[in-house]
Structure formats: C-alpha cells, structure tokens
Design a protein around this nucleic acid. Structure first.
Lengths: 145, 145
DNA sequence: ACTTGACCTAAAGTTAGGTTCAGGTATTAC
DNA sequence: GTAATACCTGAACCTAACTTTAGGTCAAGT
C-alpha cells in the first residue's frame, strides 16, 4: 500500500496528475482512509496500463471506460480483449509511420552533410527527385510516398 | 504553382491549417498575387518537412526557426544538419519506447485471451509476476522495466 | 446585374490534459 | 502547543495547435 507521494516518486508523475486521474475516474476502486488515498497493487498496475494506453493514443475518457469494465467482472473480458487488439494494431501502424518519418530525417541528415561538403545545395537539387544514390533514393522515396 | 485549395487537397490538410502555418511564419518566402498565396515546389517540399518535423515532436515555433535558417543560405547548413540529427535520435528513441508499449499491449491481448478461456483471471494472477510462459514473460518484463 | 465559388483577414472560440491556487485537515517532531 | 509535512478539495488557469466566425474582395458564368 502506497501514499500518493510514494506513487508520484515511483512513476515520476506529479501528484496533481494522479489526483486528476482519480477525479477522471481512472481508479474506480481506490481505498481511502479518512479521506487519504491508499494505492494498492491494483492501482499500481492500473497506472502501468494507463501509461501504456496513453502512449497508444487513447484519451482519458476511453481509459476510464476500460477501468469501468475492469470493475464489471468476467462478462467484459471480450470487450477488454478487443480494446487491446485495436490498440495493438493502431500502435503497429504508428510505428510504421514513424519509420517513414525516420527515413525523411535520415535523408535530411545526408542532404545537409553533402551540402556542407559541396558548399551548396545545387548538386543535390540536380539529383532530385530520382537521380539520388540508390540507398538515399530509397529513404527519399519512402518518406515521400 | 498551386492555390491553397489545391495544396489542401494534395496533403489532406484543412485550408485553415495552411493559413495558420503561414501566419506562424512557416512559409517565409511564399509568393502572393494580389493577396492570393501561390504555393511553389519549395513550399510543397516545406510541407513535407513540416509534417515530418511535427511527427518527430517539434513545436511550430521551432519549425519556424528552421524555415528561417533555410532563408539564410549556406552559413546555416551546420545548424540545420544538427537539428535533423537531434530529431533522428529523438525519433529512434521514441520508436524504442513504442516497442515497449507494443509489448504491453501484446501481453494484455494474451492475458484476456487466456482469461476468456479460463473464465477468470485467477490462474493468470497466480503466475504473476515471474511464472508466466517464457515468451509472455519476456513481453511482461519488457513492458514493466 | 447578380450569384457562385474560391480566396482573404483579424479575432474569438475550442479541446485535451494537465497545473496552480487558496484555503483546509491530520499526523508527527520538538 | 506549535510548527513542519503530507495530505485534501474545488475552481481557476494554462498551452499548443488548430478551427470557427464574421465580414470582405474578386473573377467567372448566366
């Protein structure tokens, strides 16, 4: 069992954020002793899940819905499973998008390295859009798809 | 040369967003004919870069700074190169974080699949935190690092 | 002439996800 | 007994990145 201050330390989250999450209904079963929140292992795991779902792009309201399902027993297992499967697909997709972004950044790193060597962008721009060295062309194409 | 409406179509960005970018200084050299914006190839490539830098987590103000450097000639090549190298590192890092998120999601997919089969979470919770099947344990550990 | 459609501006409004503030309680340390 | 700490609340505030609104220009078609 932990106080809000201890949990704040554990996760590096401000106390105000934890209280905000509670206010938004993300800890529906949290225990209180004379008004003071006691975070149990269930809430600790909930915070891991909250962080995960947030990074996956979910909004607080939707996360609240999930936490609600968790209090409703085994009948909501299929709903919860579906939620995680959708999130998984969404994150897999997002990682693919990030790879495109990364290829654009790698292309631009090459671009400016060469521009510095050449003293100008002229040579490079003469190679655009399809006369770049093969490996760089692949980055450029991927980024501009 | 394109009108704002054509560019909006090309990128799937609202016209209001393009005007907002212009107001924020993201197209420092855009041509206007009797008040109407003409987007040249330079602005088209700028939008590709803006999208990329936004996805990399940069703020509009910082992107404006970069666009400013682009108008200042070859003396700013090193600054621009450094910016892209920092962005590349940052995105590489972010992708690693996303892999952790993904492993949590994969773990939870397994969790609910098994909970549905078993009819309850009891069996699973008895395996936590370190008696899970090896492949699942790896996901769990990665996600809870 | 007049209506339609695509463009323009400045300024106000919106949203999510917090953060800060003002004022209060409860426990422990001296 | 009083002072420091750690907790509490509701309400106001904040920020980035847009979006909407209200009012206006201008060219082409009928």
């Amino acid at each position: 069992m932990y106080t809000i201050g201890q949990v704040s330390e554990m996760f590096g989250l401000p106390i105000s954020t934890l209280r905000y999450y509670d206010k938004e209904g993300l800890f529906p079963n949290i225990e209180r002793i004379s008004g003071i929140r006691r975070f149990s292992d269930a809430e600790i795991e909930a915070i891991h899940v909250i962080e995960c779902l947030k990074k996956s792009g979910m909004e607080i309201k939707e996360i609240k819905q999930f936490m609600q399902w968790c209090t409703e027993g085994s009948s909501t297992y299929p709903l919860r499973k579906e939620l995680f499967e959708n999130r998984r697909k969404s994150v897999e997709n997002e990682i693919e998008q990030m790879q495109k972004t990364l290829d654009m950044l790698r292309f631009k790193c090459w671009y400016y390295e060469k521009a510095i060597k050449d003293g100008s962008e002229e040579n490079i721009n003469a190679m655009l859009p399809d006369q770049l060295p093969a490996d760089i062309q692949a980055l450029y194409n991927h980024a501009h798809e």
